[in-house]
Write a protein that binds this DNA or RNA. Sequence first.
DNA 1: TATTATT
Length: 521
Amino acid sequence: MARFTQSESRRHQQQHHPQPPHPAPVNLLLPQPLLLIPHQHQLDHSPVPKPMNGPETVSMHTDSGAMKDQDAIKLFIGQIPRNLEEKDLKPLFEQFGKIHELSVLKDRYTGMHKGCAFLTYCARESAIKAQNALHEQKTLPGMTRPIQVKPADSECRGEDRKLFVGMLNKQQTEEDVYRLFEPYGAIEECTVLRGPDGNSKGCAFVKFSTHSEAQSAISSLHGSQTMPGASSSLVVKFADTDKERTLRRMQQMAGQFGMFNPSVSLPTFTSYSSYTHALMQQQQAAVMAVSQGGYLAPSLSFPSAQLHQVGALTMNGLPLNSVSVSLYSPPAGLSSPPSTMPSSLPSLVTPMMNGYTGLAPQANVHPLETLYTNGLPPYSTQSPTAADTLQQTFTGVQQYTAIYPATTLTPVGQSLAQHPQVIGQQQREGEGPEGCNLFIYHLPQEFGDNELMQMFLPFGNVISSKVFMDRATNQSKCFGFVSFDNPGSAQAAIQAMNGFQIGMKRLKVQLKRPKDASRPY
DNA sequence: TATTATT
C-alpha cells in the first residue's frame, strides 16, 4: 500500500529549499522553522495528565494508539484523497514515529470524508519530522495540490494573526508579497491565491507569528500604495473568520443562483455545450468511483471552479424575497454515525438544487444582520445558534452539490418524469420501522415522489417516498412521507433538512406519527 | 479581492 514513497534522504537535505512539485498555488517555503512551536502552556490547559488506567477514547473512525508525550503536537493533515481512510494513511505517517491518534474528518451528518485529518504522534519530535518531510512535498494520488502537514488550529489558532491582502498586482508572487510584509514581523505562511490555471487572483494570505505583528503590517501597509494595474490601493486586513467566510460563500452562492439580481439572465439550454456534457459525464463517473471506494484519477477530482459552474447552471430563478431562520430542537440522542452514501446512484436524476437556498436575499446588509433582519422577529436571541443552523444547512447543500454534481445539471423542467424510475421494485407504499419514517411539509408544489426521494437520498437508503396529491386537481398537497431503512438516516435528514428553505417556504421535517398515536381509541 | 479541509 505504499502509494507514497517518501525518500529518506529528503529529510536530511536542509541546505536548500526543496522545490514543491507543483508550480501553482503553493505556500512559500520559509527560511524560518517550518513548525512554529506553541508554548507548552498554550498546548495543555489541564495540568492533570490522563489517568493511566483508562483507555483512550476510541471511536470507529479513529486510530488510537499508545500514550503521547505531554508536549505532543496535534497536526492537521490536508489534501488527502477522499478514498483514503485511517488504515491507508497510517503507513505514510508511521515512518516518522509512533502514532498516538489519527482520525480522518467526516461530516457529522452525511459521513462524507472531508479530505483532511488530525494526527498526533506520541512524540513531539515525530510531528516536527513529519511536517518537515511531508508538508507541501508530495501530492497524493488524485489530488491536484500537495499534502498539508502542519499544527492544527487548535494548537495555536491562526485567525487573529492572519491577513488578507487584496488589490495586489496579478504578477506579484509569494516572494514579492513576502518581501512586502517581512519588515513587520516573522511570517509563518504566505500564499498567493490562484485560479486553476495558476494565475494570481490578485490577493494573498499572510500569516504572522503574532497578532501585533499582523496589526502593525495593517497599520503600515493598508492603503499605502496602489500596485500597477490594480484598481485601488492595497488592502491589508485580518482574514475572515470561519463564520464570516461561510457567510460570504453563501452570498456568493446567492449571486450564483440569481437571487440577488433577478434581472440577471438565466442560463438556458444553450449552456449545454459538448464541454458541459463531457463534464457531466466525467463528474458522474467520479461519483461512481467515489461511491465504490475506488481511486479517483486526477482528472476526476472536483475543482471548485467546476462546482461553481454547476451552481450557475442550476438556478431557476425562483423568487425569494424573504428569509427566515428557524431554530429547531435537535433530536435528543443523535448519536448514530452518519448515514452512508446510497449504494446505487440514479443514472439520471432530477435537479436537486434548483431554487434551494438557506440564503438571505437582501443586498447591502451586513451579513450577520441579514440573518436576523428579515422582517420577522428572530426566533431566538441566543445568537450563534441560528447562524450555525443556517451554516450547517448550507454546508449540506454544498456537499449535496459535491456528491451529485451531475444531478444538478439536468435542466429545470426535465425531471425524472421523463426517465425510468430509479428505484423501481424497491419502491412500494411502505414504511420502515418506527423512527425511520418522516413527515415532510411545505414541499414545493412541483415536487413529486421522485423529487422528494432525491432530496433525501443523501441521508441514507430511502425505501419509499410519497407526495400526497389532491384527487380532484391532481396537484400536490405539498406534503409527503419518506421512509429510510434506519433511524439514524431519518435523524440525519431531520437535522439537515428541517427548516430548509425552498423558495419562500421552509420545509418541515419530522418523524411521522406512529399509526396508533393518530388513532386514539 | 476570499483558499482545500480544522474534530
